[in-house]
Design a protein around this nucleic acid. Structure first.
Length: 236
DNA sequence: AACAGTTTCAACCGCTTTATC
DNA sequence: AGATAAAGCGGTTGAAACTGT
């Protein structure tokens, strides 16, 4: 692609665009309430897309990129705000273990959550906890611990909630702790996890947010368990 | 109360990919 | 087919909020 050739056309375009933005006195930084209102009203009338013209026509002194980001990550009506639930945390761990840092792809499996939010969660929580365990978050040891021991254990803890489900749905967790064999593909992601045959991403999300479901994966008890596990693995 | 250190998360940046002409 | 514009993505930053002393 052009970009890989030194002094490329694309780079020149970007420079020019930045120069123009400066010339036009583009605003940066946090969005004001008035700006949000203008953007929301404009999109309500004209719809999403064509972000550069949205910025221009709505009279916002923002780049199209900035408008798009603000809408997608904050102003969109279906954006879910608030803490990431336990189910969502488990799902993020599961999906990350197979897809890596494909944040937007992971976000598609969590309705209302944005890639930015998931990325932030990963960086601020998961990486932090991995450090506490003296593990590299990308190491096989950490990933295997999460995947084959840690997540099944958490799913077992969710079982009381799932018992309220219909009989054919209760398979959700029963398979969890017994399916510790590595998976071999990503084929079943649309239906559910290939890691745990009875595990269904959609069901997990539909369980709602009652009781302990908002607790963190990383409470003291859980961390204690993980530390012991990590220690045991290192001794082997 | 004041300050320092830490955490969180919205927003930006640079690059790549996709769409359009 | 190539140039250009727009959209999308992941990494990074920095200000605000929070916590501890």
């Amino acid at each position: 692609m052009d970009v890989k050739k030194g002094g490329s056309v694309v780079q020149a375009q970007v420079k020019l665009q930045k120069h123009n933005e400066k010339e036009m006195g583009m605003r940066k930084g946090p969005w004001a309430v008035e700006e949000d209102t203008i953007l929301v009203n404009y999109i309500a009338t004209h719809g999403e897309g064509h972000w550069n013209s949205v910025a221009r026509c709505a009279g916002l002194r923002r780049s199209g990129k900035s408008c798009r980001l603000r809408w997608l990550n904050y102003l969109r009506p279906d954006v879910r705000r608030g803490n990431i639930t336990l189910q969502e945390q488990i799902l993020i761990l599961d999906l990350h273990s197979r897809w890596g840092n494909r944040w937007s792809k992971i976000a598609q499996q969590l309705p209302g959550r944005t890639d930015n939010e998931i990325k932030n969660y990963w960086r601020t929580r998961v990486i932090k906890q991995a450090k506490q365990l003296k593990c590299d978050v990308n190491s096989k040891q950490f990933r295997d611990t999460l995947r084959y021991v840690w997540m099944p254990r958490l799913l077992e803890r969710l079982q009381p909630t799932s018992q309220a489900l219909e009989p054919n749905q209760s398979g959700l967790v029963l398979h969890a702790s017994s399916s510790l064999l590595p998976s071999n593909s990503d084929r079943s992601i649309e239906r559910g996890s290939d890691l745990w045959p009875g595990f269904n991403n959609q069901m997990l999300l539909e369980q709602g947010s009652g009781g302990d479901l908002l607790e963190s994966l990383w409470d003291d008890d859980n961390m204690c368990f993980l530390q012991q596990l990590s220690y045991d693995l290192q001794m082997k």
